[in-house]
């Protein structure tokens, strides 16, 4: 993230109104193509209107397409989404293919996402399946039957073994300490 992105609005990916859980609804509801009939900068837009617009409208009957010719001004795509967002795309000197690409972007978006920084590219409402930690989560079941005060449970857990304890353990492990060794005597 660069410095210029610090003050952008930021957030997580979200779907408007649980779109796609039941049925997918294209969120682009309306698109207005503004262009000039004789200016060279709208040439790509005019090409698109001549050869690609009918196909676009046929494939996307849920999007209302308006054409707005206006003299000597830059070609513009103005898109309106179901959530009320509006988006303008300046199409000065765009080729027909570029306009098709932009329209495809608009119809696959859920709203106007320009000027918006995603904090992450994934998001979950339930980051933990197990739930939060509680004081009883990893408790030893043996502690349920312990009677307090208990010498073992009362001493700090992180202390190393004392020399006496180690010696005792060694003795237990040796032939003298074990029950078999005693029997051998």
């Amino acid at each position: 993230m660069s410095n210029s992105h610090l003050f952008l609005k930021s957030g997580f990916i979200r779907t408007p109104s649980q779109n796609g859980v039941g049925r997918y609804v294209c969120q682009l509801q309306r698109v207005v193509l503004k262009f000039c009939k004789n200016n060279g900068s709208s040439r790509g837009m005019r090409d698109f209107i001549e050869s690609g617009l009918v196909d676009f409208a046929k494939n996307n009957p849920g999007i209302v397409v308006y054409l707005k010719p206006r003299r000597h001004r830059t070609a513009v795509i103005s898109a309106e989404y179901l959530n009320g967002d509006k988006q303008y795309i300046n199409c000065r000197n765009f080729a027909k293919e570029e306009i098709i690409k932009w329209l495809n972007l608009l119809k696959t978006q859920s709203g106007n996402t320009t000027g918006f920084r995603y904090r992450k590219l994934l998001h979950t409402d339930h980051p933990s399946i197990q739930g939060p930690w509680t004081p009883y989560t990893f408790k030893d079941p043996a502690e349920n039957l312990a009677k307090f005060p208990d010498q073992d449970l009362s001493r700090p857990k992180h202390l190393p073994k004392t020399a006496t304890e180690e010696l005792l353990e060694l003795f237990q492990r040796s032939s003298l300490g074990s029950p078999e060794g005693k029997r051998a005597e």
């Binding site: 049925r23 609804v25 294209c26 509801q29 309306r30 207005v32 009957p61 849920g62 999007i63 209302v64 308006y66 707005k68």
Partner: peptide, 16 residues
């Protein structure tokens, strides 16, 4: 100016 009610109604049904 760019508003066509018939088209909007048509698109509404198709959208859903």
């Amino acid at each position: 100016l760019e508003w066509n009610y018939e088209a909007e109604i048509f698109a509404f049904g198709k959208r859903l």
